[in-house]
Design a protein around this nucleic acid. Sequence first.
DNA 1: TAAAAATGTTGCGCTATGTCAACGATTTGA
DNA 2: TCAAATCGTTGACATAGCGCAACATTTTTA
Lengths: 189, 189
Amino acid sequence: MHPKLKLYFEERTHISEERLMALAPFFRENTFRKYAFLLREGEVCKYNYFVVSGCLRIFSVNLEGTENTRYFGFEGKFATSFTSLISRQPAFESIQCLEKSTILSIYRDDFYHLVETEPAVNAIYRNILESAYITTQKRIYDLQGADSLQRVKWLLERYPDILSRLSNKIVASYLGITPYTLSRIKAKL
Amino acid sequence: MHPKLKLYFEERTHISEERLMALAPFFRENTFRKYAFLLREGEVCKYNYFVVSGCLRIFSVNLEGTENTRYFGFEGKFATSFTSLISRQPAFESIQCLEKSTILSIYRDDFYHLVETEPAVNAIYRNILESAYITTQKRIYDLQGADSLQRVKWLLERYPDILSRLSNKIVASYLGITPYTLSRIKAKL
DNA sequence: TAAAAATGTTGCGCTATGTCAACGATTTGA
DNA sequence: TCAAATCGTTGACATAGCGCAACATTTTTA
């Protein structure tokens, strides 16, 4: 099993070395080039992804053509369209590499089989859902009603790396402001 | 066990009548008057609530004093500050009745004990987290970048009752617009 | 049930931020 | 490696929606 994934499990749950190793075969490692799509809007999401290195984003495009990014998955994070994975319905969002990335993929049915049969995976899944829930709730509370400056400061406090690591266009689509406004705000900081 | 809660379980999981009945003693029934608080910001949330009748809202107040509502719990829904319940940290949000309400409460430790020991409750909890996650994700996608008119239409499509059942002030705090703007938009619909 | 408090409506001015345009800088891929 | 494409920056302009105020209406509670 990849050491990054092993670490992920060890930090979040108790599981014997032996049973942890039994999980390894379910994860397949791939590398993807920058801008590669792991999922396109309209497809049914069939995998849960674990980012070994690089970075993913999950985003959708609205009717006016504006991109809306809701999640960045950096090294050591899981990322998938849970909405599609859970419901088996076509995703309304896409998953894309923002850098050359090394990714471990676990097939949907394998993943949910493990959630049902391996307590450690059940606990991990619960942990992922709980964290994702808390994060999104906080995001709504913090950003709803906040002006652009507050949004950028919010990002700087929470995820200071993002602003330097990713392009303005991508960051703006995450903050819900235009790249023009973001550019102006950065100039004043 | 209250028939509304029984129905909730039966619609979402398989469990024998007998074991379902064994869960009943963990839930205590109370009625609260309109505007009563079940949780105030800063307190640690100790209960998960199930709404038998009436309506709860979960909201916070930002530094400027603007209220921000993130969830309405109507009849047949669970509602709690999961962030506080999970982390055992003080809540940054409050839970308030918007109508005279009948509520079933289950104590935090009892609830998580059942999550660990009763597969049906584990499944229910997973289901709640999954649904909450999907709902919040969609909310972010749908509302971020949307103007006030789009927000009101979004509400009318998804939760048409809310607009007639709750006050403009409350609805506006859910949509992230001012009551003034909401009033003007309603006049034009 | 009546007084008080809260909420809804609407006019007005202001400001933040979106849109468009032009151009320089950076990135990308053949 | 270099041409083409994308992205960043900045000015000018337009406008959605906020804040305030004043008054009407509804709701609350004593």
